[in-house]
Amino acid sequence: MRPDAARPDALDSLDRRIINTLQDGFPVSERPYAEVARQLGTDEDTLLARLKRLLDERILTRFGPMYQAERLGGAFSLVAMKVPPEDFDRVAEIVNGFTEVAHNYQREHAFNMWFVLATETPEAITDVLRRIEQASGYPCYNMPKLEEYYVRLRLPV
């Protein structure tokens, strides 16, 4: 376990119920926290204080609307590269230098670099990939999603 992992017993039963309930959704109403607090058998002030603590302690990374960026226009793709270990840092610097690269992960595999591109138009994806290939000297394997079956990080605690 990583040193920053919370001890599971640091969360009491109310914390766990708050995390589990709020992963499922949150109402759009005048007093939504009071509404959820009633469901959880607590009160609005307690729920707000607990939520603030869970966010401050980074047990929750975020609380609010989850926007589906694709629906706002623009294009996205997952791209993989096979980079020789001795050249990895140079290529990582090139790839990270593109503002269109949103995330970049090193993974344990011959395909060791995996990044997400976010651009205004689909044509821009092709253009950025060509520029990354030219600058790095390695091919980009473009793996845009063809179908989405499920997107939801729900961790029961």
Binding site: I18, V28, Q68, V151, L155
Partner: peptide, 25 residues
């Protein structure tokens, strides 16, 4: 906000857990 939820612009309004902090390392 309801309309953006209906149209799929907002997937949902919810809490996102930090999986590392919850022991999912």
């Amino acid at each position: 906000l309801r309309r953006m939820q209906d149209r799929g612009i907002i997937r949902r309004i919810a809490a996102v857990p930090n999986h590392y902090r919850l022991g999912f390392t």
